[in-house]
Design a protein around this nucleic acid. Structure first.
Lengths: 327, 327
DNA sequence: CATCTATTTCGTAGCGCTACGATAGCGGTA
DNA sequence: TACCGCTATCGTAGCGCTACGAAATAGATG
């Protein structure tokens, strides 16, 4: 920066000021500085800046796994919006593990990030206390309706389960099943199950639940469905924890020649890319995966703008039921 | 850190040394320092450290989009391996845009990252010169076989196309089609097409190519297939640029009652989660999506270990043809 | 033209850590 | 006991920037 200042014939402070708030420097010097920067290919040292100002343009984001298409979609918009505002994402995989989450929070905090984004409400004790002690803006995303630490952008998985329950009951399905990846691997699926079961039971229906044991959703869903239907042939509808599972179920029906929805109605969750296009088109629930990213960015930016005002904002983005021919 | 030193009754330098290389500090003081750190909940300030040592534990990663399941899988393993080694990922979306890529490289560089990871070989002129001027270890991933700037971990998409061509020819398919997202949105698909076309033409076959116009692969694949088959009913096999497109094609066949592979053989690329499970199971090519992440991490760590030795390493991870009943 | 105010520019003192050379401490040897 | 060579510890000088108050300049007013 010294070099830039020398070449532009101004003091380093002026260069620094120009780089941060160009409109507070006269047009004349601004031009000279700009020229010098270009000529030298000068890149400011972000760490030095961060140290001096004790704040950074970093947003730490923690997700259970990046390779889940829901979180990936959220990360995508989140990154876009925040980059536009000059922030960068430091991303960490918690792998559904509280210890790892704590470790990651610790290392994110050591960057004095401008904000932190985490997935869900369940965090370890020590993690929570670190979070509360710091005054770093925090958004918990993808869930809604439970006590939060600061801001929230998500939706209620419980309500989602109820929504599907109501839909199936309306269509006259009473004997139902729920097929899901292990709840330990997907807490949110567990919440959807709770909502679904309560909804169905309130309607005097019945739910049989099965958790997949493996990591891949589609493959095992088929065999699990066969077992389930052998055990209890009266089941007339199945709600799958996500569209991948539903796809597996539909393939199994196709193999067995079972008509959907006549023999078995199928509903999913996610409205993935292929979902509108299955045979028959799959009834599902569309989660606001992109909107969450968008909203998280907005909450963060709002808080970062007017510092001081520490109003906690929690927003429920809701879901849409998409009724198609599979139910 | 001063506080920790005071409480532990040692000098700040010793604390710093302990935190970086614990085995160079006596067991006795180490213990006292550890106690003080715990007691104060001390978190080192990474930026100060980075400034002082002029290097950081950051790896910048640029992908065209996070929400592509291939890159997401790579990011997942990459993050895991690098976190184990004490590094963190700064992630950027280039959105297939060279200008944005340049901007991102610039802002990554301003963090003096320990390494940089980019997708593919096509970069803007200025980006390339920034990259070459710096001596930051760089890995270009997901491609192989073209001139690289430094290290490479990927595979040849051209060879992948040829592999499928050979397979289809062996099975007696000569009149083929290739359906793909726009090459501008997926350069790699374009490479697979090149390899496929040359392979088929060498075998005296024929390829009709169609690009999807929209963003969603599955939905449009069906209508495109219909048009294609109306125009040229003699087509007996279609190679889809990815399994999502293939899924769309298969659904369309199901709707029309076309037997796969009797009426039309289908092959894909990706071996996605659902692929082994379609009806009939889909022939596809398995890309080393996790292995790339792994390999990128290894190349980077090897280079970061023994500094100085700037041997460029380029590794071709290859692909596997997975023959199933759809061809 | 002097005076006052608002704006632009500048100088200096850190931010919290690491690197490096200086110092202290220790056991072994003559 | 004096001396050596080693390792463990410490002190100090930055790393490259920003914040803040002081100084300089420009513009407005009587």
């Amino acid at each position: 920066m010294g070099d830039v200042a020398r070449i532009a014939g101004v003091s380093p402070s002026t260069v620094s000021l120009y780089l941060r708030r160009p409109d507070e420097v006269s047009e004349q010097r601004g031009q000279r500085i700009r020229a010098a920067v270009d000529r030298l290919g000068y890149l400011p040292n972000t760490m030095a800046g961060g140290l001096a100002s004790s704040r950074s343009r970093i947003i730490g984001v923690l997700v259970p796994t990046i390779s889940n298409s829901f979180f990936a979609a959220t990360l995508d918009t989140l990154e876009k919006r925040l980059r536009e505002a000059g922030y960068q994402l430091l991303i960490g995989n918690t792998e559904f593990d509280e210890a790892r989450e704590e470790e990651l929070v610790r290392s994110m905090m050591s960057w004095s990030p401008a904000g932190l984004v985490m997935t869900g409400f369940r965090h370890g004790r020590r993690t929570v206390s670190m979070l509360l002690d710091s005054d770093i803006p925090l958004v918990e995303m993808w869930d809604y309706g439970q006590p939060a630490l600061d801001m929230v952008a998500g939706f209620s998985h419980y309500a989602t389960g109820q929504l599907i329950a109501r839909h199936l009951l309306e269509r006259g399905y009473r004997d139902t099943a729920f097929i899901s990846p292990r709840f330990s691997r997907d807490v949110r699926a567990g919440e959807r199950y709770r909502g679904f079961r309560e909804g169905i039971e309130q309607g005097r229906g019945r739910v049989t639940m099965r958790e997949l044991s493996g990591a891949t959703d589609t493959a095992e869903a088929g065999t699990l469905l066969s077992e389930l239907m052998a055990e209890r042939p009266s089941i007339s509808a199945v709600f799958c924890a996500n569209d991948m599972v539903a796809l597996g179920v539909m393939f199994e029906c196709q193999r067995r020649g079972w008509e959907i929805p006549e023999r078995l109605a199928v509903a999913g969750f996610g409205n993935l890319e292929f979902t509108p296009n299955t045979v028959p088109p799959l009834t599902t629930v569309e989660p606001p995966k992109y909107e969450i990213g968008q909203q998280v960015a907005e909450l963060l930016l709002a808080r970062l703008g007017k510092s001081g005002e520490a109003e906690a904002h929690q927003v429920d983005l809701g879901v849409h039921l998409i009724t198609r021919e599979s139910t």
